[in-house]
């Protein structure tokens, strides 16, 4: 089990990876989304905000998320640190992504572009 602070740190690493990737920012310039990241085994909620290609992170839940990412704390921390890709936990049901299929594919893509080989 990871702690809330570890998830926060993993999200910061994810944000850093994203924001230093100019190409990825360009790719997502049209994609404004508010994403809830919620652990289901500890009290931990974060908000990812994508606006005009820039990614910011806030602690706590958003008022009205477009997408919800829900998993156990360990999976969330591993995923945002890039130790695992979202695909396997998504396929085996450990990770739930509530949003449109297009949004799910796009989130997967962003993660792979940051952490992929």
């Amino acid at each position: 089990m990871a702690e809330h602070s570890e998830i926060t740190a993993s999200l910061r690493a994810f944000q850093e990876g994203y924001n230093k990737n100019k190409r990825l920012k360009k790719m997502n310039a049209d994609w404004d989304r508010v994403v809830l990241v919620q652990a289901n085994d500890i009290p931990s909620e974060h908000t990812l905000i994508l606006r005009k290609g820039e990614l910011t992170i806030q602690e706590g839940p958003p008022e009205k998320p477009d997408i919800k990412i829900i998993s156990d704390s360990e999976t969330l921390a591993d995923m945002f640190y890039g130790d695992i890709t979202p695909t396997q936990p998504y396929l085996n049901g450990t990770l739930k992504v509530l949003g449109t299929e297009d949004d799910v594919v796009r989130l997967d893509f962003i993660s792979l572009m940051i952490w992929g080989e």
Partner: peptide, 14 residues
């Protein structure tokens, strides 16, 4: 190279 190894595992209809 970065994306297909994983994305190929998604359901094809996605």
């Amino acid at each position: 190279h970065k994306t297909l190894p994983d994305m190929c595992q998604l359901p094809f209809h996605m």
